[in-house]
């Protein structure tokens, strides 16, 4: 009887010791990986040196008409002056079967460290016409317009903003 009690007590104690050790190891092992997750980083971007700031109210007021304008701010968040920043606006349709994208470009010269430059784009936001009458099944919904803004520097810094405008 005493032997049985010994073995049962020993088994319980050993189980608790082992489980505790594994829990400790598991916590130690998982702690660093939580810090490495960064899912929202823009691909091709290089840190936070360049930033593009858009005015949401201005975006909401854009209409599918010619002669639209959009103001944005280019910010040099790095520690060195940028010799120049190329800012490109690509206007395209959600409907990829329609006409090719339209490109607009502006250049900001000598953007000092921590400095902000304002850029204005004037562009055509008229939705391209469909060349042929397509059946409803092909694209049954009105297409949205897409504005893609890319800022790049000769030093290899870049950032991007994609704006999807509701129909």
């Amino acid at each position: 009887m005493r032997d049985i009690v010994f073995w049962l007590s020993g088994a319980a104690l050993a189980f608790l010791l082992t489980a505790g050790a594994f829990l400790l190891l598991a916590n130690l092992a998982t702690a660093p990986s939580e810090k490495s997750l960064n899912p929202d980083r823009a691909p091709g971007g290089s840190g936070h040196t360049l930033d593009l700031q858009l005015d949401r109210e201005r975006l909401a007021s854009l209409e599918p008409l010619p002669d639209q304008s959009l103001d944005l701010a280019v910010e040099n968040g790095g520690g060195e002056q940028l010799s120049h920043v190329n800012v490109t606006l690509i206007v395209s349709s959600e409907n990829t079967a329609l006409s090719d994208p339209r490109y607009y470009r502006q250049t900001v010269e000598k953007l000092r460290a921590g400095g902000i430059a304002n850029v204005r784009f004037e562009f055509d936001l008229v939705a391209p016409e469909q060349p042929v009458a397509r059946p409803p099944a092909a694209t049954p919904e009105p297409s949205r317009e897409i504005l893609e803004l890319r800022a790049t520097t000769p030093e290899g810094n870049s950032t991007i903003r994609t704006v999807i405008l509701p129909p």
Partner: peptide
């Protein structure tokens, strides 16, 4: 129903 802004290419 509002403009959406993303940090990724379209």
């Amino acid at each position: 129903t509002e403009p959406e802004v993303h940090a990724d290419p379209a």
